[in-house]
């Protein structure tokens, strides 16, 4: 049975490798992805429409803003689902293993974390704010920010990290991120445009419509960053303690 499965997997792998011959060559300018009308339209018009140098951010946060907003909602729902499944009901299972934490926080590690956590947080803010001109954006900055809180929880203990960022505040902040995102969309809707059509924000702010799209993208990224930061930390806090929120890893 094992040998049959191995031969089957090998066969499928060879089939896939054989199918890879039909792909366009690496960096081929005439490949369908490079020569389609959509990508050439974005390459030609992104800089004119939005004044954002990084096209990926412009496509993600402006042209496909609806998609990104519901991706953020998916992240939020995933965090909420993990939290509520781990909390569970009383009769879900017997908690037969109680953990006891015997440690003193390591001196060298805690001092290194003391030095490195502010740098990580400033770097996360830099990544978030520079999503327009260089790779980066809300998701990456939010993950780095969440990693800094996880680092605090790892080097001292979870109680210290939860004192700085309680679990209730995690979900409040995550919901606040979605509210920021949807609020910018709703604001542009009330100003006469469609939902998430940031160019209409120029009616209330003293900027040109292009710069309004530029700055609205920054606001949207900040919303995504809030949600991702809070959900990443809540995921770690839930998973490491099996939902008990104390005496974890």
């Amino acid at each position: 049975m094992k040998r049959t499965a191995f031969i089957l997997v090998l066969l499928i792998g060879l089939l896939l490798a054989w199918a890879a011959r039909d792909f366009p060559a690496w960096g081929d300018p005439h490949s369908p992805a490079s020569s389609s009308a959509v990508s050439s339209h974005f390459i030609a018009n992104t800089g004119v429409d939005t004044e954002v140098p990084n096209m990926v951010t412009a496509v993600l946060a402006d042209y496909r803003g609806f998609d990104t907003m519901f991706e953020t909602v998916v992240v939020f729902i995933a965090g909420l689902a993990v939290f509520s499944i781990l909390r569970g009901g009383p009769n879900r299972r017997t908690r037969d293993r109680e953990f006891v934490v015997d440690f003193e926080p390591d001196l060298i590690v805690t001092n290194t974390v003391r030095l490195i956590v502010p740098v990580i947080q400033i770097f996360a803010l830099y990544v978030l704010a520079h999503g327009h001109v260089s790779p980066g954006g809300g998701f990456q900055g939010g993950v780095a920010m969440g990693a800094s809180f996880i680092l605090i929880a790892l080097s001292w203990d979870l109680k210290t990290a939860l004192a700085r960022f309680p679990i209730e505040r995690c979900f409040t902040v995550a919901a606040l991120g979605i509210v920021i995102y949807a609020g910018i969309g709703l604001l542009s809707m009330f100003l006469g445009g469609e939902f998430l059509d940031y160019a209409h924000l120029a009616k209330v702010f003293p900027v040109s419509p292009e710069m309004a799209r530029y700055h609205a993208m920054l606001g949207v990224e900040i919303g995504v960053g809030f949600t991702v930061t809070a959900i990443m930390f809540a995921l770690y806090a839930g998973l490491s303690t099996d939902g008990r929120m104390r005496d974890g890893l």
Binding site: F99, V100, V101, F103, V109, L154, L249
Partner: peptide, 13 residues
């Protein structure tokens, strides 16, 4: 850090 913490911090009661 997470690996070292896994190995030396917590034991089941």
């Amino acid at each position: 850090i997470v690996v070292s913490r896994y190995f030396n911090r917590t034991v089941p009661l």
